[in-house]
Design a protein around this nucleic acid. Sequence first.
DNA 1: ACATCATGATACATGCAATGTTACATGATT
DNA 2: AATCATGTAACATTGCATGTATCATGATGT
Lengths: 143, 143
Amino acid sequence: MRRDSRLSRMLHVLLHMARHDGPMTSDMIAGMLRTNPVVVRRTMAGLRNAGYVRSEKGHGGGWVLACDLDKITLLDVHRAVGGPQIFAIGNESGAPHCLVEKLVNQAVEDALHEAEALLIARFGAVSLGQLARDFDACYEGPR
Amino acid sequence: MRRDSRLSRMLHVLLHMARHDGPMTSDMIAGMLRTNPVVVRRTMAGLRNAGYVRSEKGHGGGWVLACDLDKITLLDVHRAVGGPQIFAIGNESGAPHCLVEKLVNQAVEDALHEAEALLIARFGAVSLGQLARDFDACYEGPR
DNA sequence: ACATCATGATACATGCAATGTTACATGATT
DNA sequence: AATCATGTAACATTGCATGTATCATGATGT
């Protein structure tokens, strides 16, 4: 399976939207992401449903931010794009009949759950506003 | 993508091998895992290369443990089956041209690396010997 | 020797989910 | 009315684990 990059992509887009006057079209965004405008609309539909962006049709239309970047965390975006499976490894699907399998699955899942909890906590602790300020601090030089 | 269950499957097999006298054939193991003997040989080849099991051909042949379960951790097995990608999410493949993208990728990767480090540590801290003893304690009743 | 059993190895098929692509409908602006 | 942009549906592509078929190789038992 290919790696799911929707989170990164949407973070990338949202930061650019914050630094851009007026709406951005799906074509512009697709150019930035080196992909197809349909992929952009499909993915950003989740952000719109969550209330983070709005979209307008017609001349001068496109995508605009609908809330403060400080109100959005990485976790929010992760969930807005569908909250996909985090891990590529895991147990077989069905409930195990075998007691050994049960214990083994539990051991693996326990570790995965711990790692997931840490990841979710980290994602929840970083806001897009903070990322935007980090960017300014890094690339626009000190004042 | 389907979830990679080679780690769980191999742990399951190794614990059964420890509780089984004599070699186990790929057919027996395939029955336990509800899969195909070719899949078993393919996956267990990694364990053999790592020295955790041996395989013998012909009558009375099959798979046998080649070392103490206390010497094998979940991490060892994870690596022996190929040390596959842990996460289903991540950044786009190529190196980013855009500075915003660079920063965003870094933020996501930092969180992923932390979670991965925790998972690897947890996997490395659990031995198959310990799992076997846990099993006995749980399912064979107290003495 | 010879039949049988089991692994080793190769080649190809399948399933699944994100991604890519095409096509057309809908609504807003000029 | 023409143009622009999104919304949606349908289908193709890709990557990877898994499933499957087939034959070669080596070990064991008669």
